[in-house]
Structure formats: C-alpha cells, structure tokens
Design a protein around this nucleic acid. Structure first.
Length: 540
RNA sequence: GCGCCCGUAGCUCAAUGGAUAGAGCGUUGGCCUCCGAAGCCAAAGGUUAUGGGUUCGACCCCCGUCGGGCGCACCA
C-alpha cells in the first residue's frame, strides 16, 4: 500500500509541478484513527518549493491523484495540510488472503544474498552466564533472527579468550578448592573466583584425575577442566534460551595464524603504531583522542585492543558483508578505535555495526539487587530461568529499547497474570486456538472474506497488514521491542474483536470469514513470537 | 575534568521532525446464564528535567545548565 500511494503521489506531483525537485515521499500511520489509515505530509514539504500554501497544494494533489477504489476509498485534507487516506475493505481482504496463503508471512528478501555475522555473548569461560549477559545474549540472538527474516544469511559467533590473566586466576582458584577438598590449607589466590561452581569443578576433576594434582597450582588440567565444564554450562544455558551459536572463535587463533603480527606491521607502516618505554603504542590522537593507547605492553603481551582490531579484520576477510557487534555500555569508549583502525587498514568500517545496550538492574523484593561478578552474589541466567521460565526471560530482555536502562523486576516477571505482558501475547494466541477448537474451523481457503466489515474486524486487518513492515524496521533499527509493540497492538485488536464479534451462532458465510480471520491472526502472532524466540502455545 | 548513553503519568517504559504525547503496573468504578475474565470498558493522572535556538511544525535536531548510568590502566 505504501508503495502504491508513493507512486500515485509522485505521479500527481510531477504532473502538477514539473519543475520542482520532489522530496522523499513519506507515508505515515496517523496516531488518531479519525485521521485515516495512512497520511502524507507531502503538501507541507512542497509548500516552500512551489510557493503555495500547504492546504492549496494538498487540494491540487488530491484532485490530480488517480487512485482506484480497490485500494483507497477516501482522501481528506486535514490540519495544516496533511492528506489522509482510507484503505478500502477489499484491499484489506486481499491482505488477509495473502497472510493465509503464506506460512512465513512477515518474511522479506530485503537482505537476500547478504552474509551477516552477529557476534554476541562472547563471555570468557570464567563462570556461568549471569543476568548481565542475558540482555546481550537475547538481543544478539533476536537480532540474528530478525535479519534472517528479512533474507540475510546469518552466522552467530561467540568470541572468547582462554589465555589471559583471568583464566590463569581461574585455574589457580580451582587448584585452591581442589587442595581444600583434600584437607590442605590452601587459600584462594588474590582476586580469585569465589563462586560455588569452582568447588564443583574441583570435585569433578578429582573424580576424573584422582588426588595427585595438589602440588602444582599451575597444572594445566585445572584451567582446562574449568574451561571445559564452564563452556558446557554456558552452552546449556544458551540452549535453554533457544540460542544456538554457529561458531566459536578463539582469540588465540589470531596469534597462531599471524593475524596479530600482520595487523601490527600494517599499523606501523601507516605510522599509527610506534615504540615508547618498551611498549607499542597506538596513535589514537590521530583520530581525535586525547591520548594514545597501548597496543603491546612492555611485557610483550598485547592489550585487548590489538586482537580486537585483528579480529574485526578477520571477520571482514571471512567474507561477511556486515558484522554486528553487541556490546554493553562499558565498551562504549573502545570500539571507535577499532573502527578507525579498520578504515586505515583499507576496509570499510561501515561494515562493522555496533549495537550498544544499557545495563540491567535486577529488582528483587522491590529493591535493586546489587551484583558483583567474581564474588558469589550474582544471579545466574539459569537461576533466573528457574524462577520465571525462558519465555519470560527472553521477553523481559527484549521489551525495552536497547538504549535505555532496563529494570528487570523479578516479582513482576513471576506474576503469571495481568502484570506480565508476555502472557498477554501468548494468551491471545491460545485463546484463538481455543475458539478454533469450538467452531467449525476447517474452512475452505477460497471462502469469501468480504463479510468482514465490522470496525473491529477492519482495525484488526489493518494492523495485520502492518506486520511485515514492522519486522523490517525492527530488524534494520536493531530494535526488537518495536516488534513487541506491534504484536501487542494485534493482541489488543484481537481481544476487541473477540469482544465485539462472535462466530458461533452467526450466519454461515460470516462465521466462515471470521474463522479465516482467526487463522490469520494466529499465524501472525505465532510468526512474531517465533522471531522473538518465545513459544506460542495453543493452550495455557 | 573529558567522552558516550539516559531524564516522558506515582512506578516501569512507548512514541520515522507531524495533527489531541500513549501503554502496562498501581488507584477508583463497571462487565462472565453467552466461542478462555491470563480478557474487556471507563475514570483519574503530563509545563516531555531546565533555559535558549533551528522551522510551517520539536519528546525527537543544535547549544548551555542540572540530575542519573557507564567508560576514561602497560585490566579484559
């Protein structure tokens, strides 16, 4: 419909004002129902170009536009010069037929042929995933799903580092617990990991390797066992959240294959890296920063920045058209350096797309719950899912714009009823199936849909028609909450329809058309929830 | 001190530069003899932190101020 209106408007405007440069024509959905089903501000935008008052321009456009009643039944000029359009019921009926004919309604091919990588989670294997990782994981996966729905070939990648200082401390922490299990008086190392899971790992190691390892805190088996078991745990948690990674990328491979050295050499060639005080520095002042930063410490160990650059080069070399990074707000200051480096190394940093999300505050018993990692007092994602389930967990991480701070109220999330918006969506889907079980639901696909004329039916049809556009804009803006917004609107419209319109007891042709409408609503709700990674139950 | 993000109803949050700023929770009052009341309807609640600017039009863009978050290590 948008494309149709834009084409008709452009045609009318170019005939009326052949000399004027036409602006981009925008079609919007008015907030007030009395303003019609679609509106354009074209007349307002043209007023300066053609030198006439906006309402006059609007009048001329309306008179010059050639629309057919199969699409548009009315055009009105309103307010300062908006043109409002009303969709014809027959167009809405054809839309419903299209929904019913397409199981994957909402899919598009906008990004067909494009290879996307979404890199997310990327937590080092030092402990179980916490609710802090949850927003990252769920956002990343949902954005990947959205890109798939608009046609992209998507790879989900988990990037990790199992070689750094933190991993060393992890191994030592396991050693300490292992020795303590044997009754030895060994203290946890400075800054060691206090969580109970460390002792679990130590016990598992004892079972497998026996009791002879206590003498050497740096026996590689401590670290290896920890890494292995923690990764198993992380994968299981992700699995519960309906998240399947395609690839795991080990930072260490960048050293092994020479990427690190090669990037460093190229930066030196461009005079963006230099030696000072035994360290190698990155000339970030060349990109407008106040200070240069260290790439390689005087110990010879690179900081995280160098592998980050090498990793992104690698991703682009691997042939991805666009690489999405999902980062928490703490990374906000560091990625611009990486992008600058990417550009100077001859790649287009526009192919790196960074999504920054704000942190999560957990509210428990009405008060913010303070968490510190490494100490024992964090809430793991698994514990959260034990409390509220995977669907609710995903939904709560998605329901707010990534850019705003998210308050996750466990009490509200646990409430199975009216306080919980995810149940509202699932309930709509379940209720439809409940009705379909009660009525003659096996209606021929060719049934006449024209009996659908009630205002509640038409409103519902209009919202369903918006769904593909909502998927598209949600994907391109990387804002899954927009999809939730439209699913919520569909649910509202459906409940209203349910209240106003019945099927049992209605005349046969009307009942059949309404049954088809229910099938269409169920399909759209299900597709929407599927994109969000949330189940669409037939019964609750 | 510098950089990035955020300030919208009592609370949690929506709103491509458009028309009368919307939902949920909470509060108040209605609706099940009837396809699922996990639902529906209604009321109350706002100077969009604040002061300027840009324009036909600003919650949205620009500048200042105040308040909150996160960064500003030869930590990752």
């Amino acid at each position: 419909m948008q494309a149709y209106l834009i084409e008709r408007l452009r045609s009318a405007a170019s005939r009326l004002y052949p000399d004027a440069a036409l602006p981009d024509i925008q079609i919007e959905k008015p907030r007030q129902p009395e303003h019609g089903d679609a509106a354009t501000n074209l007349a307002l935008m043209l007023t300066k170009v053609v030198g006439k008052p906006p309402r006059v321009v609007a009048q001329e456009l309306v008179e010059a536009m050639e629309v057919d009643t199969d699409h548009i039944t009315a055009m009105e000029i309103a307010g300062p010069g908006f043109i409002n359009f009303r969709f014809s019921p027959s167009w809405l009926h054809r839309r419903l037929a299209a929904i019913l004919a397409d199981e994957a309604y909402g899919r598009s091919n906008k990004l067909a042929g494009k290879r996307y990588m979404v890199e997310f989670v990327s937590a080092n294997p030092t402990g179980p995933l916490t609710v802090g990782h949850g927003r990252n994981a769920v956002l990343g996966d949902t954005i990947a799903r959205l890109y798939e729905w608009i046609g992209a070939d998507v790879t989900r990648e988990y990037y990790f580092n199992n070689a750094g200082r933190q991993m060393r401390v992890l191994g030592e922490s396991v050693h300490a617990r292992y020795a303590q299990e044997l009754g030895l008086d060994v203290a946890l190392p400075e800054g060691g990991y206090e969580g109970e899971y460390i002792a679990d790992i130590a016990r598992a190691l004892r079972v497998r390797e026996g009791d002879a390892l206590a003498s050497d805190p740096h026996d590689p088996r401590f670290k290896e066992a920890a890494e292995h078991l923690i990764f198993e745990d992380i994968k299981q948690t992700l699995d519960r959240l309906q998240i399947r990674m395609n690839t795991f990328f080990n930072e260490d491979d960048l050293y092994k294959d020479g990427s690190i050295e090669s990037v460093l050499a190229k930066l030196r060639e461009k005079d963006l890296a230099y030696d000072l005080d035994g360290a190698v520095w990155f000339r970030t002042t060349a990109f407008g920063k106040e200070k240069d930063t260290v790439l390689v410490k005087s110990t010879g160990e690179p900081t995280y920045r160098l592998p980050d650059i090498a990793y992104h080069v690698k991703k682009l070399e691997r042939g991805f058209d666009v690489c999405v990074d999902v980062f928490g707000a703490d990374h906000i200051a560091t990625y611009p350096d990486v992008l600058s480096a990417i550009d100077t190394l001859g790649f287009d940093s526009k192919r790196i797309d960074v999504l920054i999300y704000q942190f999560v505050t957990i509210v428990k018993d009405g008060v913010p719950y303070k968490m510190s990692t490494r100490k024992a007092n964090f809430i793991t994602l698994d514990e959260l899912m034990d409390e509220v389930g995977a669907d609710v967990t995903r939904f709560f991480f998605l329901m707010r714009s990534p850019g705003t701070h998210l308050e996750f109220d466990i009490a509200q999330a646990k409430e199975a009823g009216e306080k919980n918006p995810v149940f509202y969506l699932q309930y709509a889907h379940a209720r439809i199936h409940s009705i379909l079980r009660k009525v003659e639901s096996d209606v021929e696909a060719s049934v006449d849909l024209s009996p659908l004329t009630h205002p509640s039916e038409l409103k519902l049809l209009k919202t369903l028609a918006d769904f593909p556009e909502a998927v598209l804009s949600s994907a391109l803006s990387k804002e899954p909450h927009r999809l939730i917004n439209i699913l919520n609107e569909i649910a509202v419209d459906f409940h209203r329809f349910y209240h106003d319109c019945r099927i049992l007891g209605e005349e046969a042709s009307l009942a059949a058309a309404r049954t088809r409408l229910l099938h269409g609503v169920a399909r759209v709700m299900k597709n929407g929830l599927t994109i969000l990674g949330i189940s669409a139950p037939d019964k609750m």
